[in-house]
Design a protein around this nucleic acid. Structure first.
Lengths: 211, 211
DNA sequence: TATTATAGTGAACAACTGATCACTTGTCAA
DNA sequence: TTGACAAGTGATCAGTTGTTCACTATAATA
């Protein structure tokens, strides 16, 4: 029967490895770096994973579970319902969702580390490439596209191709992530640009704000 | 006195190193990989550069020169003047410039390799981080911002914050770069999205196309 | 033609890489 | 209490890393 510390160590390894991989990349991190940070010998790692590659693969395998977990605590499910209810202000709700996504990938420990690691490893591993595209790009586009589809059906937004609308709404958020990734001191500036973008966007597509 | 092959080899080293760095990252490439690809022994590399780090730094130092060189052959200077002249079609000219920028970073040997290497190394080296931001993000934004400023002054485009306009115009191009980076087979789809984006953008900001 | 500097060779280096293995420790079920 | 087993240790492995150095071939200069 396993000791109850097993689960702990096994998870701690992934947490520490993700942190280091996101800072120095897969090839820049040795198994001794990981084990040292945890406080065990490198040989102990092999009691939990078959090797360095296995640790990396396990981080990828864990993405869907962790992502669901993180998102559900970060984006309360009522906000999706909120934006469709007629009482709430669409502008406020849309801005809140955007800032939440922005923060998740820029400030959250898991979100930012995962995005950075996938950004670095996308050219080395086709698996990482797939996760990067699907998670960081497509998932955002699809989510926004769905929101706009609903908002167009209720007549709140003008009719347009929802995918192009999603592209135009989500892309600035994505670019600002890259632009302010390594300058945490300019976070306010980033948020300011994000707000200006959304305001301008609404003047084009939100019926009540059209000019 | 130097043999005339010196310059050649010294440049070939940078070319080969950039190619390999862009595929596997700095830490994923050994000096033996570089020298083998060229057809010389690793010890010969040290006749031209003081070490692996020096090769990487030299690639960065060379960016401004090479970029200027590549861009001047890729983006003919008359196109910038063209877009301001009243005879040309702004839509066509703007689309042409966009596709050229898109191709440069996605299809050109130097452009795509440089972008990929900087993307990978931005978290490891602050120098790489700076070049990534300034070259891939800010340079594009500033260029587009300048074009729109001129086009607003001549009354072709409606008045708006040129920086927000640039953000909204350039970001989709930037996102599409990431999205289609590892799927060259879907290049046509990427171009189609780019065109739809620009068409929709013009419907908002181009006076003659406003709805 | 003799000299000299350059570009490249081949062997070697110390440090580090991921991985293995015999061994000890601690915990739980029988 | 004992046996089994999971988790961690410390030493060690072969291969690779970046780098160095004495040496050779070659081409231009004096």
């Amino acid at each position: 029967m396993p000791k109850n510390e097993t689960r702990d160590t096994k998870e701690v390894i992934l947490t520490v490895a993700l942190k280091l991989f996101s800072e120095r990349g897969y090839d820049g991190v040795g198994i001794r770096d990981i084990s040292k940070e945890i406080g065990i010998r490198e040989s102990a790692l092999y009691k939990h994973y078959s090797g360095k590659k296995d640790i990396f693969d396990s981080i990828l395998k864990d993405i869907n579970r962790r992502y669901q977990e993180e998102v559900s605590t970060f984006i309360p499910p009522e906000s999706v319902a909120n934006i469709l209810s007629e009482e709430s202000d669409v502008r406020e709700e849309l801005f809140r969702i955007s800032v939440t996504m922005f923060q998740f990938y820029l400030k959250t420990e898991y979100g930012s580390q995962l995005r950075r690691m996938l950004t670095m490893e996308q050219y080395r591993t086709s698996e990482a490439s797939k996760f990067f595209r699907e998670l960081i790009i497509d998932k955002g586009l699809d989510y926004i596209s769905g929101v706009f589809t609903d908002l167009m059906n209720t007549g709140v937004y003008v009719d347009a191709d929802p995918m192009v609308m999603a592209l135009q709404f989500y892309s600035p958020l994505y670019l600002l992530l890259s632009k302010y990734d390594n300058q945490p001191d300019k976070y306010e500036e980033a948020l300011s640009f994000l707000e200006k973008h959304i305001t301008t966007f609404n003047k084009t597509y939100l019926r009540s704000d059209r000019q």
